[in-house]
Amino acid sequence: MSGGPGGPGGTAGRRIAVAALAALAILLFLVSLGIGPVRLSPAAVAAALIGRGEETALVIVREIRLPRALLAVAIGGILGLCGAAMQGLLRNPLAAPSLFGAPQAAAFGAVATLSLGLADALSFALPVAGIAGAFLSVFLLIAVAGRNAGLTLLILAGLAISSLAGAATALAMNLAPNPFAALEIAFWLLGSLEDRSMRHVLMALPFILAGGAILFASRGAFRALTLGEEAAQSLGVNVARLRLLVIAGVALGVGASVAVAGTIGFIGLVAPHLVRPLVRYDPARLLVPAALAGSCLLTAADIAVRVIPSTTDIKVGVLTSLIGVPFFLYLILRERRRLGAGLAA
């Protein structure tokens, strides 16, 4: 399961892998700027980015595609980072950012504003309500489970909160004033980066950066947690505080993501797995590559939905789930094989 000292996990090998992932993310970002109903050459994209070239290309790249591409990088990145952080905190490769209910609560916040007719799907009020929903879920979680709660209690409380948010979302759809509003909600929930503006980027980015910074600052503690909570505590890690930090960081980052893009599933679960062997399973070194892998995955998915020929737009959240679920099944099978081998040995 791991490489030798000179294997892919060595310091130099790891730097190369991270650089390659970053290069791939940049490449996909540039491709994403060129893809759409009007195809633009890389040269035209580059020219438009620095404010040169013809007027139409300039508008298409800077007003329409740049916000979309930036959101794909930022949201994919924070989803990957949140997934890696959650898996580090829970010491479980099957943990996902949605475990404590923040994305579901953010979705409910956004859907409530749509349902009440306070906003259309692309207005400013939507992300505000989404982020408020994510925060509310954190307060609820801590109120239910307590500040020093153990993981089991937090997971149970998270399950209750995500179920509640799911039910409330269903109620909001149920009570939608007209079928169009219900349809708008349903489509919004599928998750999309289409037609987002720079305003959405500016709205989400501070929260995503703050959440990412909180999680990244905790990386050393994830490594200590390899030895279990008690040993980590004895090494000077405040485990109860770490749990709250991770919950807050995930709520900030994923809450802001859901608020501007709807639900985008499975990237948080899948991205860390793709890069874990590159860092020799170290939960601390995993964070940056997982974020980069998340950026690559979401940008690639967002390119794919524009390239796949179809009469109706395929939402990017649908595509990530379609790809993500088989991968999740593969992970479970691999875990089963590993356990099976363990029993046989």
Binding site: L227, A231, Y281
Partner: peptide, 9 residues
């Protein structure tokens, strides 16, 4: 019990 959760070197 020597808990070790990830296959670290």
């Amino acid at each position: 019990g020597h808990e070790m959760h990830w296959p670290l070197p």
